[in-house]
Computed example of a mutant assay.
Amino acid sequence: MMSWMDVLGRVSFSNCDPIFDGIDQDWSVLPAPPAWLTGHVLRKDCLTAPIPAADYALHHDELFLLPDLGIVSSGDVGSVLLFGSRPLESMRDIALPSDSSTSKVLLRWALKNRGLDPKFVDSGPDIDTMLEKCDGALLIGDRSLMASRQYPDLVKLDLGREWNDSTGLPMVFGVFAARRDAPEEHLKKAYNDMMTQLTKFESDESWRTEVISRSSEKLGFPYDRMDDYFQREVRNRMTPRDVEGLTTFLEVACGIDKGPKWAFHSE
C-alpha cells in the first residue's frame, strides 16, 4: 500500500509543469486545484504540495515550507486576472472562484488599496456564468489563460502586475508546504527530485521545448504563448527577493507578522 510520504501534490494547472513533467516515477502525483491541496497536505494525502500562500498564512503553525520552490511572478502573471464588462472603478460586484485562496486575498487587498469596495460573490470558476451575475470575475490558472485568449478586451487587472506596481516586489502565489511532522529525509528527496526537474527545464533547451509543447497541446494554445508564459510571467525557482515578496504579502495582506518557517535550508 502506498504511503502518503510517497505522494506529491501538484496544482492541476500548467504553472508547475516545469517541476512535475518527467518527475521521478517513484513518486505518485496527486493533481488538484490550489485551494484543495492545502487540505490534502494537512490530512496526509500527500507529503508536500504547492498550496496558496494565503493558506500557508492560515495554517502557518502546522506547516513549514520547502526552500527555493514556488509559483512566482515578477510583474504580469498572465493567469491571475480580473475580467469585467465595465471599468474596475465602476464594478459593483465581483465573482470569486472556488478554486483559489491567494488571488482572493490579493484582490481584496488591491481593491482596498485603490479605495474600492465592491461586493464579492462566491462562484464556480466559469467566466460566462460569473459575468452573467456580476460585473467582474476573478479567474486563475489555465482557465484564466484561456479566458484571456477568448476575451482579451475583458481583462481589467493582472494581479501579479498590480502587486508588483504597488510594492516593487515579486508576488509568490504558491508555496511548497509540508506538515511539521513530515520526515525530513523524505522531504529532502522530494525537494531534490523537484529541483532536478526544474533545473533541467531551465538549462536543457530541448527538454524545455518538450515540456512547453506538452503544456501547449494540453491547453490547445500556440507554443509561442506558453513559451512566453514560462519565460516572462510564471516561474518556479524562488529567489531571496521572492521570499521578501512572500514575507511582505503574508504581513500586509494576511496579517502574519513573522516570515515563513522553512523545513530546512538549501545547501
Results as ranks from 00 to 15, higher is better:
residue 59 H to D: 02
residue 59 H to C: 01
residue 49 A to G: 05
residue 73 S to M: 11
residue 73 S to D: 07
residue 44 K to H: 09
residue 70 G to Y: 07
residue 71 I to K: 08
residue 56 Y to N: 05
residue 70 G to P: 00
residue 53 A to Y: 08
residue 57 A to G: 06
residue 44 K to E: 01
residue 66 L to M: 15
residue 53 A to K: 14
residue 70 G to C: 10
residue 51 I to M: 05
residue 45 D to S: 11
residue 47 L to E: 08
residue 50 P to T: 09
residue 58 L to C: 07
residue 49 A to P: 01
residue 63 L to R: 13
residue 65 L to A: 08
residue 65 L to R: 12
residue 48 T to H: 08
residue 58 L to D: 12
residue 46 C to L: 07
residue 47 L to D: 02
residue 71 I to F: 04
residue 52 P to Y: 09
residue 57 A to F: 08
residue 61 D to C: 06
residue 48 T to G: 05
residue 52 P to V: 05
residue 45 D to K: 15
residue 62 E to R: 15
residue 68 D to E: 15
residue 59 H to R: 08
residue 59 H to G: 00
residue 67 P to Y: 07
residue 61 D to I: 07
residue 67 P to V: 11
residue 46 C to H: 07
residue 44 K to F: 00
residue 68 D to S: 12
residue 49 A to W: 10
residue 72 V to Y: 10
residue 54 A to V: 03
residue 44 K to I: 00
residue 66 L to T: 06
residue 48 T to R: 12
residue 63 L to N: 03
residue 60 H to C: 10
residue 68 D to W: 01
residue 66 L to E: 12
residue 48 T to Y: 02
residue 47 L to Q: 10
residue 58 L to N: 12
residue 62 E to P: 00
residue 66 L to I: 10
residue 51 I to N: 01
residue 54 A to Q: 12
residue 47 L to I: 08
residue 69 L to R: 14
residue 59 H to E: 01
residue 64 F to R: 15
residue 57 A to C: 07
residue 44 K to L: 03
residue 52 P to T: 08
residue 62 E to K: 14
residue 46 C to I: 03
residue 73 S to V: 08
residue 55 D to Y: 01
residue 55 D to N: 09
residue 46 C to T: 06
residue 51 I to S: 02
residue 51 I to P: 00
residue 48 T to C: 15
residue 68 D to R: 15
